[in-house]
């Protein structure tokens, strides 16, 4: 069975969420919540109540970045101090701890920030190619619902959308 995509544009979030609620209660065969994507101009955390929690793995990256980069940073600083041929300076120990902690702290932030950013790009799958079913209005003021479903239930979904008076319905290859 081949699958295809449909996207409906709504003028506000309440309409869109009502449509999703109806879709859920319609119990269509082969319909999965995971195949529903909401495209919105702003963040709508409320949608998680309807679509279920989308897992976010960014913080795992953050954790490892903030853990290992400072460790490596400290080792890097200390070992370069130990291999510096002109070692003793100002009567301080060759590997003085207070300055190295300052630098380790900076490495901690560095690792945290860089790995978080990297995690974001990986988890949000950026950079990505834009779908064909994308409308520039989504970035302005409209809400889009994109659904991937089997062709058999496609007419039912379209009917359902039409009931909620969408501004536009687009379908086809994604």
């Amino acid at each position: 069975m081949s699958k295809s995509h449909v996207m409906a544009l709504f003028s506000d979030f309440d309409q869109a969420s009502a449509a999703i609620r109806d879709l859920k209660s319609a119990n269509l065969e082969g319909f999965k919540l995971d195949d529903v994507t909401l495209k919105s101009p702003i963040e709508h955390p409320e949608i998680e109540e309807l679509l279920g929690k989308r897992p976010v793995y960014v913080r795992i990256f953050t954790f490892f970045g903030a853990l290992f980069v400072p460790l490596l940073g400290f080792l890097f600083v200390a070992s370069s101090q130990a291999t510096f041929l002109l070692q003793p300076k100002g009567g301080k120990a060759v590997i003085p701890l207070p300055p190295n902690f300052v630098l380790t702290y900076e490495f901690f932030i560095l690792g945290g920030v860089y790995m978080t950013a990297l995690g974001f790009f990986i988890c949000a799958k950026l950079p990505m190619k834009r779908n064909k079913l994308y409308n520039a209005h989504v970035s302005a003021d409209q809400i889009g619902i994109l659904i991937k479903a089997e062709d058999a239930i496609m007419p039912a979904i379209k009917d359902l959308f039409t009931k909620h008076k969408p501004l536009e319905i687009m379908w086809g290859e994604n």
Binding site: L75, A78, S79, Q81, A82, T83, P88, G91, K92, A93, V94, I95
Partner: peptide
């Protein structure tokens, strides 16, 4: 190599001067 160096000579590297 460096870590071995660090561990072996740690007390030397932590020595304050003048002693």
């Amino acid at each position: 190599m460096s870590i071995t160096n660090l561990l072996n000579n740690w007390s030397f590297y932590r020595q304050k001067r003048p002693f």
